[in-house]
Amino acid sequence: MDRILFGDNQFFGVNHMSEEKARQQLVRFKETSSIIRVLDDAYDMGIRTFMCTTHDRIGEICDHMRANPARYRDFVYYPCMPYAHKYANSVSQVGVLETIQRFSTGGVINTLVRGAVGAVTQDIYALMTLLIDAEMKRFEGLNTPVIFIQNVVTDLLLGLRLHPVFAEFARYVQERYHAEPGFITMNLPLLLGALEEVGVKNPIVCANINKIGFRMCGGIEAYVEALRNRRCRPIAMSVFASGAIAPAQAIEWVCKLEGLQSIVFGASSPANIRHTKTLIENAWGLSN
């Protein structure tokens, strides 16, 4: 796993600090070509891994990469699924069963008669594989060595105490995609306990880790302790706490954490990408 990963919030109007800024970003990245330009900037600076939500528009980015294999030879995707709003809106509109049918089109479910859907979906593991396959379809032929569950789903499963689903997810992505499972969470200490309980060993986990403890449930102390003492491969996200911490301070603090494996960050301008990358490289003593 690379130590510096590139995130995608800036492309899809996600900004935890300002709704106005989120809207400006949505406008700026309306065209997929403008997203690709930023990815090119990051890639040309040596950031090869793109941690991306399985947003509808990611398909167009994948198409572009597939069409230019030489240009993107070392490009790596870490898909993060699902893009929850898509499902949540759909569940509110048409209900759970209809949603499953809606989003698994093109998958196995098309071959099933409508009446059989109920039977398949009684088995949530079978259902999960259908949804994973549907989400992974757009990444066909691309390099996806780690596949993540988004925090809203990870944390929902955690709260419902459906921990065996984590193990089943891990098994399936290893078997079907030869990928490692990843788990995004806002409740890292609690999640690590649950993963251990169901036998997911040395997991790749991604959580908010920042100097001010923003969205670090369980508290900074518990996080620092977990990073130091638990066998896991943690990726820090939201290291700037959406801009609440000055970049140099933020990176200095997070890079000192014992046990931290990688940092994922998002930026839109070449100057900002380079600045953050340099800060991390200097703090960790990585060579360019």
């Binding site: 935890h16 600090m17 809203v152 944390d155 806002m186 609690l190 001010i212 449930c217 508290g219 959406s242």
Partner: peptide, 17 residues
């Protein structure tokens, strides 16, 4: 002022504090 400084932490996070 921003939410990062105005929101108290919670024991478990699912969709928002």
């Amino acid at each position: 002022r921003w939410i990062t400084d105005l929101q108290e932490g919670v024991a478990f996070y699912l969709r928002g504090e």
